[in-house]
Each structure stands twice: as structure tokens, then as C-alpha cells.
Amino acid sequence: MPPDPHALTSMRAEAGARLVLRGIVLNIVLALVKFAGGVLGHTYALIADAAESLVDIFSSLLVWAGMRVAGKPPDDGHPYGHGKAEPLAGLAVTAFVFVMAAWVAWHAVHEIITPHLAPKWWTLPLLAGVVAVKLWFSRRLARTGESTGSTGLHVEAMHHWADALTSAAAFVGISIALWAGPGYESADDWAALLACVVIAFNGAAMFRKSLRDVMDTAVPESFENEIRAIALRVPGVQALDKCRVRKSGLSHLVDIQVRVDGDLTVRAGHDIAHAVKDALIASSPHAVTDVSVHVEPMI
């Protein structure tokens, strides 16, 4: 017997949720480090970066909860599963990103018009370490999201990438302030303001990605063609008509119309339809958990 597709989806969701939890721990540590560095090093860019990391903890908790719910198998109240919880969590995270970008931008403007001390030189290696760690973890999330088809992990990866961008902007701004000397103390604040614009664009990309899943946007044509090829290899299937595939969290749902010999018995047609369903569900790289097959006679 092939493995239960819903059990496999739950396993992928649990693995993704554990990775998100590691990201939460990472954000807690980095937030403390950046806040201390910002206060002692006289740089608002680091303080703003720390505040963003703290907010990231709450948004990551939303992604974690969304993945845990998305991994649940179908029940009477949710016959198609709970997969939509994942892109909905992604939409909630994008709201956090937009609010945080606006908050940091407002405070950056305040710091620009308020005289303050120049940042300390030792904040540069601290920021370089933060950028390196964030980029590494973002790539790890992105790879896992790609292998599991998880929108939530993709959004989380983009979020960590945005954090790395904020820290990189602070690094550039502090470098300018230290190199240019008096009169350029607010360079890191300008850098933080510029990073907010980029983060807002990044948030828009997160929003579009999550919205596509919520709205049942068609999967890529190459994916649909792979589904069609698998169905056509089933003995008895002579042709295909409609094939609709939609993403639901970490899995896909398929509606497909196959054509068979019109002289077959109802039972024989049913057996072919069942074979198509089994073949698609067994194609584990595609994470198909449910298939509806409609049988039509060849004309």
C-alpha cells in the first residue's frame, strides 16, 4: 500500500514548523544583541533592526501556527483539508511587514531631524555577523520551502531576507557616518529609511505570493503537464480533456477528465479512474492528496 498522502503532508508541515521555531529562537537572540549594540553604539538603525526582530517573533509564530493547522488531515468540517491556513498566515505576516516598515520609517525620519552622537565603530562587525546569519537562515528556509512547496516557508524566508537587508543598510549607513565624520551622524538613519522602501516592496511580493494560493491561482503549466503525463500513462486512458490543479497549503488537489473506450463496463471505467487517482497520489514529488476523476467515452 502506498503511504497515506495526508500523513506525508503532516510530516512536511511538522518539519517546516520546527524550522520556523528555530528562526524564532534566532530572532530572540539577535534582537537582544542588536538592541544592546544600538543603545551602546549610538545607532538608531540597530535599535530599529532589533525592534523589527521582536515583531518578527510574533509574525513567525503566525507562520508556525498556520503550518501546524495546514498539516491536519481533512475532517467533516474541512473535507478538502486545512491547507489554506498556511497562505492565510502568510497574508497576516505581510501585514506585519508593512506596519513595521512604516514604524521604522517614521522613527528614522525623527532621528534624522534630531541631532545625536555618531555611531561606534564596533557596531560594524556586529552587523556583518547579523547579515551573514540572516542570509544563511533565509537560504535554508527558501530551500526547504522549495522542496516542500510551502508558501509559508517562502514568506518566512523573504522575511528573514528583509531583516538581512535592514542590517546591511545599517552597515552601509554607519560606515558612511564613520568615514565622513562630523555632520554625517544621521547616515545610518537615512540607510534605515531607504531599507524601509525596499522592505515594503518585499512585503508586496509576499502578499502576492500568499494571495495566489488563497485565490486558487493555476499552477505553472509545466506542473500541469507533469500531472497530465502521469495520467496518460495509466493503462486504459486514451486521452485527457480538462485538468485543473490547485494548491492547498503543502499539497495539491486535482480535478481531471479522462477519456476511455466507450464500450467498457461501468466497473472497468471505475477501475481506470481509480488507477489514475492512485498514480497521481503516488507521485510524491507533486504532493497530491486528493484527485477527482471524471470518465468520458472516446468519440
Rank of each mutant, 00 (worst) to 15 (best):
G262M: 12
D255S: 14
M298A: 13
I28N: 07
G236L: 07
L124K: 01
D188F: 04
V39T: 02
A118Y: 11
A108Y: 01
A31F: 06
H159I: 12
H270S: 10
R143I: 07
L250H: 00
H160N: 12
V25E: 09
G152C: 12
D49T: 02
H78Y: 10
G38Q: 02
P285A: 11
L153G: 02
R208F: 05
G129F: 09
I57E: 10
S284K: 13
V33L: 11
T114E: 08
G77I: 06
G152P: 01
R246L: 10
I281V: 15
A170K: 01
V155W: 07
A128H: 05
S147F: 03
D278G: 11
L8Y: 04
A218M: 11
V97K: 06
E156D: 14
V97A: 11
S251V: 09
S167P: 07
W106S: 12
L253H: 07
D49S: 08
P119W: 03
V20H: 03
R12T: 00
Y44E: 09
E14W: 05
A279D: 12
R244A: 12
A95Y: 10
P125V: 09
A132R: 04
V237L: 13
V29G: 13
G173Q: 01
L250R: 00
R208N: 14
K84L: 10
E86G: 06
S138C: 13
L26Q: 15
T43F: 07
M11S: 15
K34A: 13
I199N: 04
H42R: 02
V33P: 08
V254G: 04
L8E: 12
P235W: 03
R143D: 14
I230S: 04
A192Q: 00
L88M: 14
V33I: 15
H78W: 07
S222Q: 13
V20C: 08
A36W: 07
A200H: 02
V29I: 14
I113M: 12
A7F: 06
P3C: 10
D75L: 05
K247F: 09
F96P: 05
D255R: 00
L32F: 07
S186Y: 08
S138Y: 05
V197M: 12
A85M: 05
R267N: 13
D76K: 13
A287G: 03
L194I: 14
R139H: 14
N27W: 05
I299Q: 12
V131T: 01
A279L: 09
V237M: 14
D49W: 06
E156Q: 11
L21H: 05
M298W: 06
V197Q: 08
G145A: 15
L250Q: 02
T43Q: 06
G38T: 00
P74N: 07
A282P: 03
H270V: 11
T166V: 10
E156Y: 06
Y80K: 08
L124P: 00
A164K: 03
G83I: 04
G90A: 10
S59P: 08
V260G: 13
L211I: 04
P73K: 01
E185S: 08
G181V: 00
A287C: 07
A105V: 02
V219S: 10
E156S: 15
I176Q: 05
G37Y: 04
A204Q: 14
I272S: 10
P73R: 01
G152L: 06
K242C: 03
H82Y: 13
G129E: 10
S60A: 15
